[in-house]
Design a protein around this nucleic acid. Structure first.
Lengths: 208, 208
DNA sequence: CTACTGTATATATATACAGTAG
DNA sequence: CTACTGTATATATATACAGTAG
């Protein structure tokens, strides 16, 4: 995508927000007022520029016919932060996800999947959760969380190993036990300060 | 929902179709022409009636501000026809699904889930596919199909048992073998004429 | 009452146009 | 050239209004 100046990105945001609120696109005049622009000509001028840059489409002479090229109002996008149990660290904290649009790898979920929209996803690598019916390449949908109850399926960051892993959480005798759902793998037992819970599993998606 | 007369359901369909094509709602005049209505007043009159009946909403004096109350353009709805391996027959053939909107039980999938939109879904009952990582209450997304290749996961109708079952398909020595993915269950071996393939599994969705 | 016909009209709206500044 | 200012204007558009028919 080509760069946008301040005015143009403000126009895009305004159209997006207006669309989210009303389900239709704003008029040139509404953009003018909403973005504090001096005249409709300037809006027109910048809309043409945005059209040339590929950010939107417009039907001529038709009211409210601006269409942003990546508008999606009926499902929400959550980023696939990284793979898990594959040695790669989570690049960012799930709490710090600012703009899901900026991630290349994502899944889109219908709005009725969950009321909670601040979810993220991880692609599962390996077979450690096979007995929980989660296999290699499945996408797990996660809700950000810092703590967990016994038996909950969580993604945890292990600083010692520098990896994120998908496990069932148990706190026993002041130790955190992370259980795989595969008899091949023994539980990981660590002190609580050596494990950082990143989120809880709220769904699984697999394409066959 | 209250009943609609011919003209009003035609108007609703026209708005829906127009929206699907252009991503915005039509004007009163476009509805007039598209539905062969004599004057804009009649459109206005019927739009008010439709608003009162709850079929749409409208912002006054605003162009193209009609919003159908159940418009969904970014994901598609597929019906959950019934449960499988639970003794209940499939009520209809998946090929005969006319209007996915008319089913009470459904899942909504983002448009990018599959190019094929004529899918249906079944809710899994039982543990016969546990080794394929499909468990009780999972929803399997199916593509309608009448035949299958060896090893494919299919939903099949067994007239003798009057049930739909989820199995892996194998054709060996002129017999159809339907294999569970659970060592607890023996394969079902039947003559080809005693089994009707209904669809192939294309996805699995589970909410935790 | 409901369900229109036919016409008029105010305004919502996109866009053109003549300048201006760097 | 780019990026505006300020104004004008054609038309796109929603809606009102006076009737009419059953």
């Amino acid at each position: 995508m080509l760069d946008l100046n301040d005015k143009q990105s403000k126009i895009i945001s305004f159209i997006q927000d207006y669309y989210n609120e009303f389900g239709i696109s704003p008029t040139v005049r509404e953009i003018q007022n909403g973005c504090n622009i001096t005249s409709t000509s300037v809006v027109d001028y910048n809309l043409k520029a945005l059209k040339n840059k590929g950010y939107l489409d417009k039907r001529p002479d038709i009211s409210r016919a601006i269409k942003l090229n990546n508008i999606n109002d009926n499902f929400f996008r959550i980023p696939i932060l990284s793979s898990i149990a594959a040695g790669e660290p989570l690049i960012v904290n799930p709490e710090q996800i600012s703009d899901p649009e900026s991630y290349d790898d994502y899944v889109e979920l219908p709005n009725n999947f969950s009321k909670e929209k601040k979810l993220f996803a991880l692609r599962v690598k390996g077979d450690s959760m096979i007995d929980a019916l989660i296999s290699n390449n499945d996408i797990v949908i996660m809700k950000p969380a810092n703590e967990a109850g016994n038996g909950e399926m969580i993604a945890a960051w292990l600083p010692a190993n520098e990896e994120v892993t998908l496990k069932r959480f148990y706190l026993r005798n002041n130790k955190v036990e992370l259980h795989s759902e595969n008899p091949k793998y023994d539980p990981i037992v660590v002190d609580p300060q050596n494990v950082l819970i990143k989120g809880k599993v709220v769904g699984v998606i697999r394409k066959v």
